[in-house]
C-alpha cells in the first residue's frame, strides 16, 4: 500500500443491504479476505416490507484503506448504499452493554453509586450481584466497565455501535 505510513483513522460506516441469505457473510468475508479491521459490527432488519437490513460497522485503517473498504462494500451486489458517517458531518453513535458485577457488603453501595453516575439501569439483581444495562458512546461504556473491574466485574456483553448522521436527512 502506498500510504502504509499514513495515520490510522477510525471510521463508522453505515451500509444498507438486501436482507438475503449470506449477505452478512459477504461483508465479513470481504473484511477478512482483504485484511481489513472490524472493530464492531451490528446488523438488523430495518424494513421488513422491502427486505432491507442496516449494517453499522466501525473500522480502522489509513485513509486509502478506508476508501477501499467503502468501494469494495459498494460493489457487493446486494448492497444498496454505503455511507461514511465519520466523513459526512456530525453523527450520533450509541452502543448498549450488559454488565454483570459481583457485589456484596459495602461494595454494593459503591457499585450502585457509580452506576447512578453513569445512568446505568439495574436489570437484574441477586444478593450477590447486579446486571447493569448501559447505553452510550463506546468510550463511556469503556470507562464504566473499567470502573467495575476492581469492584467485581464478572462479564459484560456489548452490542457494537449503532449510528446515524445528525439532521433530517437519511443516513
Amino acid at each position: 500500500m502506498a500510504d502504509k505510513t499514513a495515520p490510522q483513522e477510525r471510521h463508522t460506516i453505515a451500509v444498507l443491504v438486501d436482507n438475503e441469505p449470506g449477505v452478512l457473510a459477504r461483508v465479513i468475508g470481504l473484511f477478512s479476505g482483504r485484511g481489513y479491521n472490524i472493530e464492531s459490527l451490528t446488523v438488523a432488519e430495518v424494513d421488513r416490507e422491502v427486505g432491507l437490513s442496516r449494517i453499522n460497522l466501525v473500522t480502522i485503517g489509513t485513509p486509502m484503506v478506508i476508501e477501499q473498504i467503502k468501494a469494495q462494500l459498494d460493489r457487493l451486489v446486494p448492497v444498496h448504499s454505503v455511507r461514511d458517517l465519520t466523513e459526512n458531518g456530525p453523527h450520533v453513535e450509541r452502543e448498549l452493554a450488559l454488565i454483570k458485577v459481583y457485589a456484596i457488603g459495602e461494595n454494593r453501595a459503591e457499585t450502585l453509586r457509580l452506576a447512578e453516575i453513569f445512568r446505568a439501569r439495574v436489570v437484574d439483581t441477586t444478593a450477590e450481584s447486579f446486571i447493569f444495562e448501559l447505553t452510550g458512546p463506546a468510550d463511556k461504556l469503556d470507562t464504566f466497565i473499567g470502573l467495575m473491574r476492581p469492584l467485581g466485574l464478572v462479564e459484560h456483553a456489548r452490542t457494537g455501535a449503532a449510528a446515524m448522521s445528525r439532521g433530517k436527512e437519511p443516513f
Binding site: A2, A71, Q72, R75
Partner: peptide, 11 residues
C-alpha cells in the same frame, strides 16, 4: 468501471 480499482495500489 470499478471504483474499487481506483486508489487501490497507486494513488
Amino acid at each position: 468501471i470499478d471504483p474499487s480499482s481506483v486508489n487501490k495500489n497507486i494513488r
